[in-house]
């Protein structure tokens, strides 16, 4: 779990960053890119606070 949370948080942020490039290269539609960005954003806001809280609890 201690490695999963940071990995998942960073993956969500990276996927959000990748979404406009996928749209630019024609892999995703404009709506698809915006939806992917929104989902990745929500994932980041769920995972990152958990990661930070866990890190702060560690001695």
């Amino acid at each position: 779990m201690s490695r999963l949370l940071p990995a998942a948080s960073l993956a969500s942020l990276s996927a959000g960053l990748a979404s406009p490039f996928l749209h630019w290269h024609g892999v995703l539609s404009e709506d698809g890119f915006k939806q992917m960005l929104l989902v990745c954003s929500l994932a980041w806001f769920v995972l990152a606070p958990l990661w930070i809280a866990r890190r702060q609890r560690q001695p």
């Binding site: 942020l13 960053l17 979404s19 406009p20 630019w24 404009e30 890119f33 954003s41 980041w44 606070p49």
Partner: peptide, 24 residues
Amino acid sequence: SRFASVCSPWLFVIFVAGAVGVMP
């Protein structure tokens, strides 16, 4: 303030995503 620290990297992603997304 702790919540704001979570926002900073995400905001940066939004700036880049918004700009790259309108390139086409």
